[in-house]
């Protein structure tokens, strides 16, 4: 990737985040925007794991769950500041990813998909069953990080929606920047190389097992931070955050937009987050539309919306 491509993508993203509020008819849309950015952040993790390194995970919501419950539990039980709770969640997720990834990343294709799926469901199950700690399936409240009050003291008054919009937007920008850095770096090249041919990657000295584990761990951290942000802005969390459907949503967003491209995957997050909002009138049809979209995009735009469209435009330009 050329350096200019990296800055173009970041600029597009920045403009999107900065200018979108101009078109918001009401404060509610800041909430939707923040949700989009949180999903976008999780999806960037999938881009690193699946788009760069070619590995599948249907269990990444498990890490979002770890992040979310770290934010919910650590302030009360360990007396940590909510921001440190986010860091703790990320560290726990990274450690779990490292341990779980070692055995399961030896697997390929469907086997890897199902093993990761099993991991995610186990996390959701533990969160749902340990009622004493997590409140079980009914969920639990999450303490406010108090950052908004801090800004108020500095003279910056924001509504809750506005605050989380800008906060999540900033996190998304940082996340995208790091992912784009990685893509162009020696490590990123090595990840994309093992995606292309594991045998050839080995013969140039790439430690395939180690690099897959690194990609898995980084993507787990992305999911974990996204989970923490989600928990803190909703002030409430249920085990569904770690559930199978949430894992599927992450992967679908990434693949829909274009799993090989950071900006594409974020676009996938935009579409799939907006879909239920647009379809509220047709709430009964939401699932059908989602299913149909998943099938149609995979058949007709297999690289994902953004890369397929880009290819078509380029083809016309030549």
């Amino acid at each position: 990737m050329r350096p200019s491509a990296k800055w173009t993508q970041l600029l597009i993203l920045f403009l999107l985040i900065a200018l979108l509020p101009l078109f918001f008819p009401s404060g509610y849309y800041f909430r939707v925007g923040a949700l989009i950015f949180v999903n976008g952040l999780a999806v960037i993790g999938i881009v690193i794991l699946t788009g760069y390194a070619g590995q599948i995970s249907l269990g990444h919501a498990g890490f979002a769950g770890i992040g979310a419950y770290a934010s919910a539990l650590a302030p009360g039980h360990l007396g940590l500041h909510p921001l440190l709770a986010v860091v703790l969640g990320a560290l726990v997720s990274a450690a779990v990813a490292w341990l779980v990834g070692r055995p399961i990343l030896r697997l390929k294709g469907y086997y890897l998909a199902v093993a990761s799926l099993g991991f995610g469901i186990l996390v959701a199950m533990v969160l749902g069953n340990e009622r004493a700690l997590t409140g079980g399936p009914d969920g639990m409240a999450v303490p406010d990080p108090g950052l908004r009050d801090l800004l108020k003291d500095l003279g910056l008054k924001l509504t809750g929606g506005e605050f989380w919009y800008w906060c999540c937007g900033l996190c998304l920008l940082i996340g995208a920047w790091a992912a784009l850095n990685l893509q162009a770096s020696p490590t990123g090249r090595a990840l994309r190389a093992l995606h292309g041919s594991e045998v050839a990657a080995r013969t140039v000295g790439i430690d395939v097992a180690r690099l897959k584990l690194q990609a898995f761990t980084i993507s787990a951290v992305y999911a974990s931070v996204a989970g923490s942000l989600l928990a803190m802005q909703n002030r409430f969390i249920t085990p569904d955050v770690a559930g199978f459907m949430h894992s599927i949503e992450m992967v679908t967003m990434a693949v829909l937009g274009g799993v090989g491209s950071v900006i594409g995957a974020i676009f996938g997050a935009v579409i799939l987050t907006l879909l239920p909002q647009v379809l509220t009138v047709f709430a009964d049809y939401e699932q059908m539309v989602l299913g149909a979209v998943m099938i149609l995009v995979m058949i007709f735009l297999p690289e994902g919306l953004i890369p397929s469209l880009a290819r078509k435009l380029r083809g016309r330009g030549e």
């Binding site: 009964d284 049809y285 939401e286 699932q287 299913g291 998943m294």
Partner: peptide, 26 residues
């Protein structure tokens, strides 16, 4: 989608599952 990568086929069959479930509910 013959010849598509495994992840695409997984998305397709999961999409089909969601579609069928949504239709059954309706």
């Amino acid at each position: 989608a013959r010849g598509a990568p495994v992840v695409s086929v997984i998305i397709i069959t999961i999409g089909a599952s969601i579609l069928i479930r949504g239709a059954a509910q309706l």
